[in-house]
């Protein structure tokens, strides 16, 4: 390759990994970059952590497990919240988002996190932590937080891959599933074996629901619109192909499936559960990554 052409290639195909030729921007279906590329990667992590934290908190309510509440609360606020604020251009102004709960999904989410923070703190420090009313309120708050990230994405009409119907159910179930895995792992290392083993029935349910949601998401989005189709195609081709195959297919679905079958009927042990947790963790990160990365805008330049 001559020097000249090397220069030209650099110019026309920016090495920022976006794969976007400048002259195809909004002329062809154009990938969203803001919430995944560069700094946007923070948001991916923030959404993940706040949701699995809330998921852990949520399932811990059913098992009245305080350590789970504390860890869930911490993950949501410290990992989820802090990373979230780091992503902001003006972190010091973050308080403004609380001032306008009516304006947007995003500020409603912030409100919910705020309420969750306060109420959760109270629940954790109070003597009678697992009071029914408290549980119900916290349960609802957890579900709202779990779905917060995807709900924020879901309201964006401009990105059909995010606004498709299965996005919310998928996000709720993924939060619960990963949270449940965390809890199961906490139990298996700290409690009698039969407790973790007894949890396996629900683990099976959550897992298959999760897989079903992924399939329904992909199928539904593919058939929702031309652009939705574009997103799903993008997930299965190009640079996302590897992540979809290994991350989502391998770590999110296949490996947990194998492990679930191994442990079928409650035949659990700490190693398998840890392995499944790690796999599910990575798999769910991959699911979110692929969904965020493959969202495309409808081109403006088509036959109007």
């Amino acid at each position: 390759m001559s020097n000249k052409i090397h220069h030209l290639v650099q110019t026309m195909f920016p090495p920022d990994g976006s794969g976007l030729k400048p002259y195809e921007w909004m002329v062809n279906p154009t990938r969203q970059q803001q919430w995944i590329d560069n700094q946007g990667i923070f948001l991916w992590l923030a959404f993940f952590f706040s949701e699995i934290g809330a998921g852990l908190y949520f399932v811990s309510l059913f098992y009245e497990f305080k350590a789970g509440l504390i860890l869930g609360w911490l993950i949501t606020l410290i990992l989820g919240g802090a990373i979230h604020i780091l992503y902001l251009g003006n972190p010091l102004r973050a308080w403004r988002m609380i001032m306008k709960p009516k304006t947007s999904e995003l500020s409603r989410g912030i409100w919910i996190i705020g309420v969750f923070a306060v109420m959760g703190f109270l629940q954790i420090i109070s003597g009678s932590s697992f009071n029914v009313v408290f549980n119900i309120i916290m349960g609802i708050l957890c579900l709202l937080i779990i779905s917060h990230g995807f709900a924020t994405m879901n309201v964006i009409r401009a990105l059909p891959a995010w606004s498709s119907t299965m996005v919310l159910p998928l996000s709720v179930i993924s939060g619960v599933w990963v949270g449940y895995q965390l809890l199961q792992f906490m139990f298996v290392v700290s409690k009698p074996a039969e407790i973790a083993s007894g949890m396996e029935v629900w683990a099976e349910v959550f897992f298959f629901a999760y897989v079903l949601c992924i399939i329904l998401y992909a199928w539904g989005t593919y058939h929702s619109s031309e652009i939705g189709k574009e997103s799903i195609i993008m997930q299965g081709t190009g640079e996302l192909k590897r992540i979809s195959l290994i991350g989502v297919g391998g770590l999110g679905v296949a490996l947990p499936l194998i492990l679930t079958l191994i442990m079928w009927g409650g035949d659990t042990n700490a190693f398998w559960i840890f392995l499944r947790l790690a796999s599910v963790f990575a798999g769910d990160l991959a699911v979110r990554y692929v969904i965020m990365k493959s969202a495309v805008y409808k081109p403006l330049l088509t036959r109007q």
């Binding site: 909004m26 154009t30 102004r93 973050a94 988002m97 009409r157 401009a158």
Partner: peptide, 20 residues
């Protein structure tokens, strides 16, 4: 008032916004 969350940027179907 802008906190730089870029939700607007992602939301715009016309992609007319830039994060500075």
């Amino acid at each position: 008032k802008c906190v730089g969350c870029r939700a607007c940027l992602v939301s715009c179907p016309y992609q007319q916004r830039t994060y500075y």
